[in-house]
Structure formats: structure tokens, C-alpha cells
């Protein structure tokens, strides 16, 4: 157990370093953008003086490294600065949005992960059967359509022709949980269709990959049923690759939701980032990018820890 705590601490430290590097890249990237921010925001009619005053106001007249250090120092204290467009605190702006995005991701994960595992295990169990092929065809088709296409198809059938679910997922902090889940159902379903195929196929492949190992032959020679062999003998050894694909999918659910949020007008981070890019609201874009990076790092850390927890060789060394 001590080893795991130590490893988690090490990985967290490493994650912080990565985050630091990412922040540098984000800052430099924004810095390299052509054009003058103040000029862009104030428009062409602005006089030299107003632009200069605005630049001073934003601190743009300071050298880049000073601005970077100030920006970073702010973030460390939880202060992301102010939005240029709305003049609101970014942390406040992002807070609600992030919650919404996480809620949508969680809802999609709750549907997609068990579904993918179930389909994958069944496909491994009845591999090369009609069922196996059907699941493969359907899930691969789903993943190869663009997200907005799936979204519109779902809207057409589940919101327009059969008005079971709302096509606009407008939620706010006061919406009760069940109502929230109901309104977010279509975007969650869209995301599910997008991510389920990879997880399902990895589950199937990881299990089938193990079926040639001597301990699976042994399990068969012990006279165990097929489902027992797959579930008890193959699956526990297949977790490592499956977990990694699940985590990558989860990361996608959080950082890749832009299109889906826009289609369903869902007030999440994706919407915010699109709006901010349009209005050149650079501090907000920077903050969102950093949050996405942190999400990736945290989820990968989770995957590593789970991989260790599911592997007795690592969990109980000699």
C-alpha cells in the first residue's frame, strides 16, 4: 500500500510539472498570435490613446515573462483573472460551466462504460457469431459518423418525430438532478455512441488476446463454463488495456464535447471556449486549456493507479 501512495505522490508531482510546461506552451502560443489584442477588442475606430490606456489596463505593456509570472501566480492562488468580454471573474464563469460539462460527461460515462464492457464481453464470448459482427458493424458505424450528424439524427427521431426528449439541453444550477439528467439525455446519448465503439472493441480484443494463454486452456480443462472462463479467468487479466481506453474516452467526454454542446446549446465548457475564441477572450481560452490539460493528467493518473490495483503482481510484490 505504501508503494502505491508513493507512486501516486510521484505521479502527481510529475503531473504538476507537466501542467507547468503546458501553461508555458499555452502562454507562448497566445503570445505568438498575430495582431494586437487591445486593438482587436476596441475596434478600428479607437484612438491611439484609448488603445494605449487599455493596454496599460490589461497589463499588456509589461514584458511577456512578467505577465506570465503574474498569470501563473494568480492561477496558483485560484485567480484566473477577468474575462475581457464580460469583465466577470473567470473562475466564477468557468465554475458553473465546468460543473455542467462534468455532469454531462458523468452521465455519458454511466451509460457508455457499462454498455461497452457488456457488449465487449459478450462479443468475446460469442466471437465470430452473428451477434459479434452485428455489434461491430453498428458500433463502428456510429463512431465513423460525425458527431453533429448523430446529434441531428437523434434530435430528428427522439425529439421531433417522437417528442420524448428535449432537443435543447438548457440547464441551470437550480435544475433538479432528475430533470437535469432528462434534459441532458440526448447529448449524453450522442457522446455514448461516439465513445462506446473503442471501449467495446478494446474489451473484446483484450479478452480474445488472452484466450490463447495456458491458464485459459487450464480453465477450460477444469470443466468451467464459457462465461466463467471469460469473466473470471480472462477479464481480470485484461483490465490494463481496457482501463486505459476507458480513461482516454472519459477524457474525450470532457474535452471533446465542443460540437455536441454547441448542437444542443448546452451551457458547458465547450460552449464557453467557442464563444471566447470568437470574442478573442484570451484569458478565458487560456484558463479552459489549462483545465483540459489538468483533466488529461488526472485521468491518466487514475488509469495508472487502477492498473496497479487490478494487477496482483504489482499490488502484492514477492
Amino acid at each position: 500500500m505504501y508503494k502505491i501512495v508513493k507512486m501516486v505522490a510521484q505521479r502527481l508531482a510529475l503531473g504538476l510539472v507537466t501542467l507547468f510546461v503546458v501553461s508555458l506552451i499555452i502562454f507562448l502560443g497566445v503570445e505568438l498570435l498575430p495582431g494586437d489584442l487591445a486593438q482587436e477588442i476596441l475596434g478600428r475606430s479607437a484612438t491611439e490613446e484609448t488603445v494605449a490606456a487599455f493596454r496599460r489596463d490589461l497589463g499588456l505593456d509589461l514584458p511577456p515573462h512578467t505577465r506570465y509570472i503574474e498569470w501563473l501566480a494568480g492561477i496558483v492562488q485560484g485567480d484566473f483573472g477577468r474575462s475581457l468580454a464580460s469583465q466577470r471573474e473567470i473562475s466564477e464563469l468557468i465554475g458553473v460551466r465546468l460543473q455542467n460539462t462534468l455532469f454531462l460527461a458523468a452521465l455519458a460515462a454511466i451509460i457508455s462504460v457499462p454498455l461497452a464492457l457488456f457488449l465487449g464481453v459478450m462479443a468475446a464470448l460469442y466471437r465470430n457469431s452473428v451477434y459479434d459482427r452485428a455489434v461491430n458493424v453498428v458500433s463502428l458505424s456510429a463512431v465513423s459518423f460525425p458527431e453533429f450528424f448523430i446529434a441531428y439524427i437523434l434530435i430528428l427521431y427522439l425529439a421531433v418525430k417522437f417528442p420524448w426528449f428535449p432537443s435543447l439541453a438548457n440547464v441551470d444550477p437550480t435544475t433538479p438532478l432528475m430533470e437535469r439528467a432528462y434534459r441532458s439525455f440526448l447529448p449524453a446519448l450522442t457522446l455514448t455512441l461516439v465513445v462506446v465503439a473503442q471501449m467495446m472493441r478494446m474489451t473484446r480484443a483484450a479478452i480474445i488476446n488472452l484466450l490463447a494463454s495456458p491458464y485459459i486452456e487450464m480453465a477450460n480443462l477444469k470443466g468451467l463454463s464459457r462465461s466463467r472462463v471469460i469473466l473470471y479467468h480472462a477479464l481480470p487479466n485484461a483490465w490494463a488495456p481496457i482501463i486505459n481506453v476507458i480513461v482516454l474516452s472519459l477524457a474525450y467526454l470532457i474535452v471533446g464535447v465542443v460540437v455536441v454542446e454547441v448542437v444542443f446549446i448546452y451551457p458547458g465548457l465547450g460552449q464557453l471556449i467557442v464563444d471566447s475564441v470568437r470574442t478573442r477572450d484570451i484569458p478565458v481560452v487560456q484558463a479552459c486549456s489549462l483545465i483540459f490539460a489538468a483533466t488529461y493528467i488526472l485521468l491518466n493518473l487514475t488509469a495508472d493507479v487502477l492498473t496497479i490495483l487490478t494487477n496482483p503482481r504489482l499490488l502484492h510484490p514477492k
Partner: peptide
């Protein structure tokens, strides 16, 4: 090979 034929997970 018992080492390969015992399931490493149990």
C-alpha cells in the same frame, strides 16, 4: 508450466 497455467489474477 505451472507458472503459466495458474491464473496470475487469483
Amino acid at each position: 508450466s505451472a507458472a503459466a497455467s495458474f491464473n496470475p489474477a487469483h
